[in-house]
Computed example of a mutant assay.
Amino acid sequence: MKPLSIEGAWLFEPKVFGDNRGSFHEWFKAPAFDGALGHRFDLAQANCSVSSAGTLRGIHFADVPPSQAKYVKCVRGAILDVIVDIRVGSPTYKKWQTVRLDDQDHHSVYLAEGLGHGFMALTDDATVVYLCSEGYAPEREHGVNPLDPEIGIVWPEGLEPVLSGKDADAPSLAEAEAAGLLPTWEDCRQYYAKLRG
């Protein structure tokens, strides 16, 4: 696993074996997570979404603790995946990083608890699967508007963003911070230390 520019975010680039029958790759290996994260990735829930081109999902996050770490892969088509540091007080607070995930390179991203996550579908029928360390709990789930100019994510040109009503009505980052919805860097660091035992 290769660390990304935001602490707690990682890129996994598997070796893909191909021949005249197709291809094979290992997309999750527990020892790689143990070594990179310093703790086990406990799987509590697995999700799958299918999106038409231009669909924009996120930016989603959950209360810390326990929040929800995610391991994300696009198994059909392509997406632009985005990780946003919404941890108030973090050295990279308000920074974001995008990674293209598709069914050709088979890359995956991991994001730790407390980070914001979203993606835009670049193709029709873009199919995304993600493993989650905690189950969905509506009372702990929150969002930040993915089009918030303060964050300034550069989404692909030529695609009109299609958002759910919930995501379109999500607060800006400043509004979420003022409302006390965002996790703090200190709370996240304490929780990461607890996970490492």
Rank of each mutant, 00 (worst) to 15 (best):
Ala174Ile: 04
Ser23Trp: 15
Lys29Cys: 11
Ile59Ala: 01
Glu186Leu: 13
Gln104Asn: 11
Gly58Ser: 07
Val82Ile: 10
Cys48Arg: 15
Leu181Lys: 12
Leu101Lys: 01
Pro156Leu: 09
Arg196Glu: 08
Ala179Leu: 05
Leu131Tyr: 12
Pro14Trp: 00
Val82Ser: 01
Asp148Glu: 08
Asn20Leu: 10
Cys188Gln: 08
Asp187Ala: 15
Leu182Val: 03
Ala46Tyr: 09
Lys94Arg: 15
Tyr192Arg: 15
Ser23Val: 10
Arg189Ala: 11
Trp27Val: 15
Ser172Glu: 06
Pro91Gly: 06
Ala69Thr: 01
Ala30Pro: 14
Cys188Ile: 04
Thr92Trp: 05
Val75Asn: 00
Pro66Gln: 06
Ala32Leu: 13
His142Ser: 15
Asp187Phe: 04
Leu111Phe: 09
Glu113Pro: 01
His142Trp: 11
Gln104Gly: 09
Glu139His: 12
Ser172Lys: 02
Ser90Ala: 12
Ser164Gly: 09
Ala78Lys: 10
Val50Glu: 13
Met1Ile: 07
Gly116Thr: 04
Gly22Leu: 08
Glu26Asp: 07
Ile6Thr: 07
Gly197Arg: 11
Lys166Ala: 14
Pro146Gln: 06
Ala30Gly: 07
Tyr136Asn: 10
Tyr93Asn: 00
Pro149Glu: 11
Tyr136Asp: 07
Ala137Ser: 13
Glu157Cys: 11
Asp85Cys: 08
Phe33Asn: 03
Tyr191Gly: 00
Gln104Pro: 00
Asp187Asn: 13
Glu134Asn: 14
Arg196Tyr: 06
Phe17Ser: 13
Ala44Val: 10
Val82Tyr: 01
Phe61Lys: 01
Trp96Gln: 06
Leu37Trp: 08
Gly197Phe: 05
Trp96Asp: 05
Arg87Leu: 03
Gln190Ala: 13
Tyr93His: 11
Trp27Met: 12
His117Cys: 06
Pro138Leu: 06
Ala179Asn: 10
Glu186His: 13
Ser133Phe: 08
Asp63Met: 05
Gly114Lys: 02
Arg21Gly: 05
His106Met: 13
Ile59Asn: 01
Asn20Val: 08
Asp167Gly: 06
Val75Ser: 10
Ala168Met: 09
Ile79Trp: 02
Ser164Asn: 06
Thr184Gly: 03
Arg21Leu: 09
Pro14Met: 03
Ala137Thr: 14
Ala121His: 05
Ser49Phe: 05
Ile59Tyr: 02
Glu13Gln: 13
Thr123Glu: 14
Cys188Thr: 13
Val82Asp: 02
Ser90Lys: 01
Glu157Ala: 15
Val72His: 02
His39Leu: 10
Met120Gln: 13
Ala168Lys: 15
Val144Thr: 04
Lys70Thr: 04
Ala170Tyr: 00
Gly135Pro: 10
Gly58Trp: 00
Thr55Gln: 04
His25Ser: 12
Gly135Cys: 10
Gln97Gly: 05
Tyr136Ala: 07
Val99Tyr: 01
Leu182Ala: 03
Ile151His: 01
Cys48Tyr: 10
Lys15His: 12
Asp105Lys: 14
Val75Ala: 03
Cys132Ser: 15
His106Gly: 03
Gly58Gln: 01
Asp169Phe: 03
Ala53Asp: 07
Gln45Ile: 08
Glu150Ser: 12
Ser52Gly: 12
Lys15Pro: 05
Cys74Met: 08
Thr184Met: 04
Thr98Cys: 12
Glu160Thr: 14
Lys29Trp: 12
Gln190Leu: 13
Leu159Met: 07
Pro171His: 04
Leu4Met: 11
Leu11Pro: 02
Leu159Thr: 06
Gly35Asp: 15
